[in-house]
Write a protein that binds this DNA or RNA. Structure first.
Lengths: 131, 131, 131, 131
DNA sequence: GTGGTCTAGACCACC
DNA sequence: GTGGTCTAGACCACG
């Protein structure tokens, strides 16, 4: 797998893992229906605790990113990821808020902020080969 | 003061407080040189512990948003907030990354994302009366 | 541990603790990657409060002397301590200034002052066994 | 007077005042027998509290740097500042210790440290005109 | 009256 | 078992 965790980070491991999987989907490396490694395997590969992987998977299942079959294992939701709704957009806005406020205080131009965002979008939507 | 904390939130109280102060500065409600309430006063007003307020203040001082005088109390950095540097922009980008990835997965259009950001900028830069 | 605090001293306990750890590193008793006792353990050993230890650790982390892992505990920065920069040297000079001035007033010869400094350097750089 | 206080500093005002006077003596701007401004005058000039000036003077008197006559006012000890004794040297050493340890950790060369010290000595012992 | 230090003790998240 | 957060309450230095 392409997943890389930072054991030094302040961010919890299961959060990092969730983010990496989500980024994998955003990049198109993981597509609906794709199987993920078994919990046990992934934990071993990453050198982390079983519980940590399980927690990440469970939360992603709850957000409908993953489906966990007792037998078939873990797959990216074959029906695709649920579209963003108003509730999601509201939460997203509140999450972005402190970054905007902080940036404003430190004199970041709105266009610089927007360009950075565009850059991130570009990073995820470009074809893999162009990486 | 205009500060409102959510005691139920998973976000630590001192983080919420920090954010609210930063947002107050971004909005122009707090200007360089302005005094903040005394630690004990603010703690009582907000119904939280003095040490929680202290932690928020101290971290903001370390980020050069505030100055803390042993006797005179706490003021918004009279020299203004230090301009963003490359290091800040890099951290900002990494912080934004998961939101972009997550949004992409859920089919948020880049322009919707950008518009939401613009909206936040507008919210902070408009005159108070227009609120 | 080799740490000894003076409960009577005017110097704050957490400052004493910080200094003792830094001296431990300077002496080579603590090396990059070494683990320090858990916060609670050390607090109990020293007969002081857990929060006092935490404050010392956290400030040393901020100065890049320590790394604090939520689970693994506290270790001396495995990458080593960051080299002194111009800013540090400037602060150091201003901190030394009053001692030089005071010593001059009391007729301390510059060479005596320098020799005392050399002696301190020697004290920290000699092999442990020679103590 | 040549005294300049930093109201923003973490260092207590009375400490700053003490240091500035000591530095004045070290520089030779203040000589044994010289009169200092009255407490009231100095406090007014510096824009600080009477108590603050009084505390600085009292502590300097206790260290035999000053004599305070009820009538004649405050003068630099006419018999000169008492020579450093072994006790002073011991205290000095313990005060210098953390700076040496900290510098060692951050890779400061002993000679750089010594040169900085020499520079400070030079700064105080050079003739005023050469400033 | 201001912030700074310290204590005692609780509950939580993470692994 | 680890550190992180929060509370309640004490005493001190400074001005």
């Amino acid at each position: 797998m392409f997943i890389q965790l930072d054991l030094q980070s302040k961010e919890p491991l299961y959060e990092q893992l969730k983010n990496q999987i989500v980024e994998g989907i955003a990049r198109g490396r993981l597509k609906p229906g794709d199987r993920l490694p078994a919990v046990r395997t992934l934990a071993e590969d990453l050198g982390i605790n079983l519980h940590t992987v399980r927690k990440a998977f469970q939360e992603l299942q709850q957000e409908n990113f993953l489906l966990i079959h007792r037998q078939k294992g873990v797959v990216i939701n074959p029906e695709g990821i649920p579209e963003a709704d108003a509730a999601y957009m509201e939460i997203l806005k509140e999450n972005l808020r402190p970054f905007v406020a902080h940036s404003l205080c430190r004199g970041v131009d709105m266009n610089d902020f927007l360009n950075m965002t565009k850059q991130l979008f570009a990073e995820y939507t470009q074809k893999e080969g162009e990486n």
